[in-house]
Design a protein around this nucleic acid. Structure first.
Lengths: 135, 135
DNA sequence: TATAAATTCTATTAAACAAGTAGGGTATTT
DNA sequence: AAATACCCTACTTGTTTAATAGAATTTATA
């Protein structure tokens, strides 16, 4: 399961994508339309900004807008930003790799082999689908 | 990411599968060989027993053994037993379905559509692979 | 039949994480 | 100057994770 934070991020990006590349939106509007708690959404948009997916303008009449085209924002990138690894085991993760302490030999490990296949498949789709596929 | 509990369950099942259908194993042995905290493993084996995957014999010389053949134990079943839904969103889960409170229309929801595809793909593999594939 | 061996059951714990909430600070427009 | 809207830090409440502890129960066997 993905966190609500991650789901809200997808919804916010989708909302902004509808306006892309013209106007920008305010958090209050996104929160209202997408049914996301406003203050929680602010934190999410801030993370998306740090991640380089959106940018913002402060002050009256300001707001958020997409930096990249919707079809260039991969779902996997967003997932990783909020929920970390896409893989089901740390030892098969590409971006969040960690050795299993209880496993003496990764190469011989059957779990490693099987869950690498599952990761490959999921990863492929997650890095192929973009925000524009949600629209 | 799957929980350690779930990973340990897979390892325990694999350990038992090596002996199948002949002998049974004791938790102490599994714990030692597979590097799993013994008391934690006991809880896991109990859950696997309640789930109908293993059975046990109490008393001296007792232990756990597989009830089903390794090739009939689907990875998805075990995953669900310990970690719940395989899907990334509650609204696309088969066994743990829940409506998203923030979403007015599931049919029109782009997130729903995309993550249903991802679930379908993952589910297929998770219900196709079995414990014998880990061996 | 006593004893040791093994599972079974219930409870507790510390740490991390999830999902927000709160409130003030900073920048910009009007 | 005032209103607007993003920016930042901290806090809270509840749940989950990953164990640990100890006693109860069952069974083989010496």
């Amino acid at each position: 399961m993905m966190s609500k934070k991650c789901k809200y991020a997808f919804k916010a990006l989708t909302h902004l994508a509808k306006r892309y590349p013209d106007t920008h939106c305010q958090t209050a509007e996104i929160a209202r339309v997408e049914n996301i708690p406003r203050k929680f959404l602010e934190l999410i948009l801030l993370d998306l900004k740090k991640g380089g997916f959106v940018n913002s303008k402060q002050g009256a009449g300001g707001g958020y807008y997409l930096v990249k085209a919707p079809e260039t924002i991969l779902l996997g990138e967003i997932y990783r930003l909020f929920d970390g690894a896409i893989a089901l085991l740390p030892c098969v993760s590409l971006k969040f790799y960690e050795k299993c302490k209880d496993c003496p030999d990764e190469v011989a490990c059957g779990l490693h082999r099987v869950f690498l296949q599952i990761r490959d498949q999921t990863l492929k789709l997650m890095l192929q689908k973009t925000v524009s596929d949600i629209l």
